[in-house]
Design a protein around this nucleic acid. Sequence first.
DNA 1: ATCGAGCATCAGATCAGCTTAACGTTTGGG
DNA 2: CCCAAACGTTAAGCTGATCTGATGCTCGAT
Lengths: 358, 358
Amino acid sequence: MLDVRRLRLLRELSHRGTIAAVAEALMFTPSAVSQQLSALEREAGVALLERTGRRVALTPAGIALVGHAEAVLERLEQAAAELASARADLSGTVRIGAFPTATRTILPAALAALAREHPALEPMVDEIDPAEVAPRLRAGDLDVALVHEYDFVPTEPDLALDSLPLLEEPMYLATRDSPHAALPAPDASRGAASPAAGGGADSEAGAGDAGAPARVALVGCRDEPWIVSTPGTLCHAMTVRACQAAGFAPRVRHHIDDFGTVLAMVAIGQGVALVPELGAADPPGGVRLTSLPMRRRTRIAFRRGAGTHPAVVALTTALRAGVAPSPHGLGPAPTSPPSPTSPPAPASIPAPAPSPRP
Amino acid sequence: MLDVRRLRLLRELSHRGTIAAVAEALMFTPSAVSQQLSALEREAGVALLERTGRRVALTPAGIALVGHAEAVLERLEQAAAELASARADLSGTVRIGAFPTATRTILPAALAALAREHPALEPMVDEIDPAEVAPRLRAGDLDVALVHEYDFVPTEPDLALDSLPLLEEPMYLATRDSPHAALPAPDASRGAASPAAGGGADSEAGAGDAGAPARVALVGCRDEPWIVSTPGTLCHAMTVRACQAAGFAPRVRHHIDDFGTVLAMVAIGQGVALVPELGAADPPGGVRLTSLPMRRRTRIAFRRGAGTHPAVVALTTALRAGVAPSPHGLGPAPTSPPSPTSPPAPASIPAPAPSPRP
DNA sequence: ATCGAGCATCAGATCAGCTTAACGTTTGGG
DNA sequence: CCCAAACGTTAAGCTGATCTGATGCTCGAT
């Protein structure tokens, strides 16, 4: 009988590409992974890995086997979920991954509700960029994660993961708002003073192609210094891609992840930035927020098969309850098909942007 | 992650009922099985076994988990089958279980063809009663098995196994055929001299209810001594049930498994017997064979998921080729729906017969 | 009441699998 | 062109999981 633990190593290898990465992800030494994969090949009787130089690649048989591994692991996840449902009290720990903004805005209320409903359930939160979520969910480091996806930043599907929509929010262009501004006024300057008041309702082109109108708003800032997130994060990719789509490459001055800090920097004229509504809940004075027709969609991701796990259900319920009745303009995500085959969670930042660079 | 080896123990327990039986089947000591199941319960966090006196029973959670175990093991079986397909040469050993008659009649030709087509494949044959096939397939002792099922002997479905039809043959009542017979002549005495000549085509009621006509033929022998197979075998159950359905309990004189020997005993007047056509290919003189409207269906059984394993496919092909062009009256099984969800293989001799006893 | 079947537990032995350490190879950069 | 970092493999040693064997208990049958 094929060893499922070894199949799991193979699956990780198919995602990460190198044995060293698999080892790091699953907390082993590369030696152990190498030995176990060799053993797997031995019991399979077929070559699964092709040693090419200092790198390994999966053979067709290896790729096929990964498919079976995914199926088996999914079923085991389902079994674990059913067992957890059978347990009388919902106890143990849930490891939650969340991007920084979510940790501050939507998570606290959800955790409070969770503690009220299930006192024995101990949530553990990890602040983590969505780009790292997929590997850590697969590896079992995390059980649930809040991720977001932006227009312009495609998400590649992951067979091992599943996700449900949570909310959708508009994006804003943050510029300095001073009467004697040296900044060129953005053309589409209908900017609301605070999105918390006006809400997301004033974003004109709700769902259509976000390219053209966004370009109009952005090109006015093509010569401004930009404040973006740390390279490697999804938010960094988002800003760069949006600018590329508008036809220019942003001149980056600062790398700052926290949107509160970003807005403070904008207020003192250190640059412009793109911020999502949740990151601009309480903007400092002197910042003009221009609603863009780009949106950010936040989803709840988990391992495929774990969607019925009571802890996941409880957290999902708590998160939705915390989002739905909110007076904020950001509505809950349109109750889109909550099918289990809905677009999976994002993995990592892929492929270069298709737009040309001047 | 749930340990699949332990899940396999749980599945076996659900079939066999006692830890001791599981241990014997999987070549462990009861101690090891007990420890592993305890460990499984610990990692499940729920009670899976209910210790009731000196016996264990599965809890609802345990039963549910068995369902997942079946699914996981089936998928692993599929994976193994696909890997074997990817292997260039079909080599290794196939362990085949077959009932004695099949071992002598249909298996040799198939093994010869198999050796011709796949010289590197080494078949190992175990002569075994169909009643024991299911456990041994599940345990991995066997890879493929020839089993048969009789009218009157219901087969209980087994989620872990799958099967394909191979052939169908009529049953005969064997009685002494002497001019000055002290035996009462069977009413439906149209007996062909040799079934190999007349074939199964002269059995009147092909598929209909076999009860009534069979009763007519059998009741004439209600006072004869009977020769039946060893208790515990499927063939034993078949004769007893058929007689019960005809309204009497057979007076058993001999327990003999080999149908050739049975017919020899019939020829010298030691009793009467029910024999399938394959068991009566070359009957000795002095035996009258009366065709009955009962049929025996032979199937090829294997673990669910292994249906695409090249070794299984090769053996199935060889068996079918050996049966189809045969000049014998016994046709190949009517090409009934070869769906993978066709009636699974027989397990063991179940439930008492519904017919009353005088 | 006694016996045997079945299961749990404990101590000891065995073996699979992990880590450390050392080595060969490849590849990208200076 | 050369070097250093990255990657994978192998050998040796160790640890923990798991199996065996012995013991004790409970229950049902003779």
